[in-house]
Design a protein around this nucleic acid. Sequence first.
DNA 1: CTGTTAGCGCCTTCAA
DNA 2: TTGAAGGCGCTAACAG
Lengths: 325, 325
Amino acid sequence: MANIKQIAADMGVSVATVSNALTGKGRVSAQMVARIKLRASELGYRPSLAGRALRSGQSGILGLVMPDLTNPLFPRIAQHLSLAADNRQVGILIADSRGNPDEQTQAINRLLDRGVDGLLIVPQKGTTPGLQSVPTVIINTASDPDNTVSADHAGGGKLIAEHITALGHRHIVILGVDRVSEVQRDRVEGMRMGLVTADTVLELWGEDGMDQLAGAIKNGATAILTTSDLMALRVQSHLIRCGIGVPNDVSLTGFDDLPFGLAMHPMLTTVAQDVEQIAKVAIEHLMRAIQGEQSQEKNDKIAMRLVTRDSTSLKRNTTSLETIK
Amino acid sequence: MANIKQIAADMGVSVATVSNALTGKGRVSAQMVARIKLRASELGYRPSLAGRALRSGQSGILGLVMPDLTNPLFPRIAQHLSLAADNRQVGILIADSRGNPDEQTQAINRLLDRGVDGLLIVPQKGTTPGLQSVPTVIINTASDPDNTVSADHAGGGKLIAEHITALGHRHIVILGVDRVSEVQRDRVEGMRMGLVTADTVLELWGEDGMDQLAGAIKNGATAILTTSDLMALRVQSHLIRCGIGVPNDVSLTGFDDLPFGLAMHPMLTTVAQDVEQIAKVAIEHLMRAIQGEQSQEKNDKIAMRLVTRDSTSLKRNTTSLETIK
DNA sequence: CTGTTAGCGCCTTCAA
DNA sequence: TTGAAGGCGCTAACAG
């Protein structure tokens, strides 16, 4: 692999000149720059990032810590992060904290040992990683005070709740996955904000909640708001078994806009995180911080987007269920 | 950040001694080793991987190139790779080739520029990345000759086909996603091998195939084998619309065992890639190659596993469809 | 058993 | 506008 010294020897100039020419410091004559660049590309020269890293103390690598790489959001976050990172010529090193706070700390340390210039952390449910020795951006934790960028989960909940009330529904069930998760709680809270015009709001959680669904519908509920697409799919399966139709008997919504929502029938109405925007903002913050600038806004909430599909419909006055009865 | 020189000065020995003590080269007295290690941990010393990389020419980083980070397999591959990599003290740098062969080349080059010691490539459909300048393992391409580790897609197809014929089905539809993909073709071919005892096998592809499904069932088909879980979900949705029940009227299978298969009703019978094993073997091969050993087996096929759930059942002699007619 | 030296590839003074 | 020299942190070769 050609190095800077080789080029220098090759052209009878000094390494410093080659370095200056290649990095465009402007201390070299235009003509010399051209000749050096030509020769460099002939030789297929690629600067050694190792050398540069040693010299500059910066690796050009960012670390991404996820609570669980099978998290449905990981692919999209990684994708957009990767794109944003490529544009800035930095690399992304991944680390899985395996759903466990201790592993999270270890994962962070491994990344730090590798000399990452900054950290992007999607924290474990309920944990708030402390201040690190490198610039850090927290992704997707709702109420963390410092340097976080997150989807506006509450806003998303409000959005979908308003969609439901606009369709005329007044008796609503909210079904959450897991009370421990701050994100989940934010989503539910947002839903409640959007349901001020509703007559009854029943809040259920987890498996137990699922079991109470049919009863709630018998008692007049006409819409079910879940806090995850996966949950919505399970609810739909469950309802089919109970002979309850979506959206004819009851409207159903998801959360997150996962790919399979399009493959369902009816296609799932849900709310999407603007992951692209989240990734973009997160990287921007981080890079700014790495370059030593203080960012003014420490806490960014990215609006969610309502995705209206077929699993929600106008409240009917007589449902087929009533006909059956 | 404490460095080796500091420790040396601190203890009145030379840097070489510290290095030898810390890396356990055994050229230092046990007592000195102990003292040095103590002091190092007091100082919170972490060896600079940049320095080491420059010196040794090895970065301790592997590059993972995926055709599309939203690929449903990416999370699980990344997770297991990440675990295997942690155990070996190497890092994983990700790159998205964005569904495009040119980007694939660029992604590889970016990784190479970063000095990765080896490459794990899940290639674009239909492409075979050429020989690289670092050890490379190809993941999940069926018939590539060199250094690939892959799920045994054909074997998986055979497995699920045999499951179906064992249930008594004799008129089968195979529904593939995309003819261009070698993986998809292998799956279909495997299915055919498992269907030797069937009376009729209809092979359909893509959207067009989906449209012909109802007709095929009217003509007597009692089982549909798809080459992806997502496809299976879409088929199920489609069948419900046509008034055809799974598994009562027709048995249905997926491929890949994605998480949502469990949330479906009926839960989807499918076939799972042993991603953990794939990741393990891939990393082993790669590390061996990096350490300069020739691996004997250049081409590993990892067996798939049948996941029997509720979307398949015994062929009945009278289906509800026939009753309807 | 321990120390000295050299150099991995690069960039940044400082000097010419 | 260009060159020479030093050093980032580490390790390997060679001395003592």
